[in-house]
């Protein structure tokens, strides 16, 4: 029994939490790819930005990170709109690869700006110690519950937005066929702006969750990039629901791979967790580049 409780509390639950965080980042990558047709390499750094924006409020005014989260989301969305205007909008009609190179530049700029403003030290939100709740075998930290529930709520909200609102449907229409959307009278630029707001906002929420779960450092965006891409590719890039499933799958795979499956040693050395995400991504790219689910062509 102790082994089972270990498995659930030390591998399954953390995997689920990490999966939620990956899902929040991967949604943005997938939405942006669908609308703008390029892989946004600065998306991990959008998550870092969200985490640091929250620090302004937790460190200076002693806010709870949960209270700082909405502010960080709004702040990241505003920054994303500015970055789009300055660095991506000029390349709307250029091949997507030019925007990828521009996103390299944005990645360097975002990370160095964060290092410049907040320094390079590891930071944490001061949330105090809260004891985990015990339900039989389960030992769940309150923050884990919050992260999973808030992520679920955000995904449901996204679903309602995409299926019930005029703008959300227009977003799916542009993702489906941008040229047709344009000649149908859909305001594509407006759709693009909202894609940035949603993508960056969800990424920021994910970044704050990382801070709540563990700690915050300026390079974390880079470390996130691989699992985020893996999640987006696994779910079929351009498909936001797939990204959610992909994020959960990658998070769980990374944590569960380090379980002592066949011996007393971890199956995969914890130092090699990112390699798990990478392997999944490469297998998917070669075997089914359109994703596990029926992907876009």
């Amino acid at each position: 029994m102790a082994a089972l409780s270990d498995f659930i509390n030390l591998y399954l639950l953390p995997g689920l939490v990490v999966g939620c965080i990956y899902a929040l980042g991967a949604i943005g990558i997938s939405l942006l790819f669908g609308i703008l047709r390029f892989a946004h390499f600065a998306h991990g750094d959008m998550m870092t930005l969200g985490a640091y924006l929250a620090i302004i409020f937790t460190a200076s005014w002693g806010w709870s990170p949960y209270a700082a989260l909405p502010v960080a989301v709004i702040g990241a969305a505003i920054v994303a709109l500015g970055l789009d205007r300055a660095f991506y909008k000029p390349f709307r009609r250029a091949p997507g690869i030019v925007s990828v190179i521009a996103s390299f530049g944005v990645m360097l700029m975002l990370r160095s700006a964060i290092q410049l403003i907040w320094g390079v030290d590891v930071k944490t939100y001061d949330i105090g110690i809260r004891f985990p709740m015990e339900f039989g075998l389960l030992k769940i930290a309150p923050r884990q519950v919050t992260i999973v529930l808030v992520t679920a709520a955000l995904v449901v909200a996204l679903h309602l937005f995409l299926t019930r609102t005029r703008l959300g449907k227009a977003m799916r229409a542009v993702s489906d066929d941008a040229d047709l959307a344009r000649v149908s009278g859909i305001n594509v630029e407006q759709v693009i702006r909202w894609t940035w707001i949603i993508g960056a906002g969800l990424a920021a929420a994910g970044g704050v969750f990382i801070g709540i779960q563990t700690k915050v450092h300026p390079n974390m965006g880079w470390d996130l990039l691989l699992p985020l891409f893996a999640a987006a590719v696994l779910g079929g890039i351009g498909r936001p629901y797939g990204a959610v499933a992909g994020g959960l799958a990658i998070g769980l795979a990374q944590e569960l791979a380090t379980y002592r499956w066949f011996s007393d040693e971890p199956f995969v050395d914890p130092g090699y967790k990112p390699a798990v995400a990478f392997s999944v991504m490469v297998v998917m790219l070669i075997w089914r580049p359109t994703g596990l689910f029926k992907g876009r062509s």
Partner: peptide
């Protein structure tokens, strides 16, 4: 042999991943 059938963004993702795994 494995990755060059991938185009543009996908090759970028795969190659960044190879470099990271090698670094690890």
């Amino acid at each position: 042999r494995i990755c060059l059938t991938l185009q543009g963004d996908y090759l970028a993702m795969a190659s960044i991943g190879i470099a990271e795994v090698l670094r690890i």
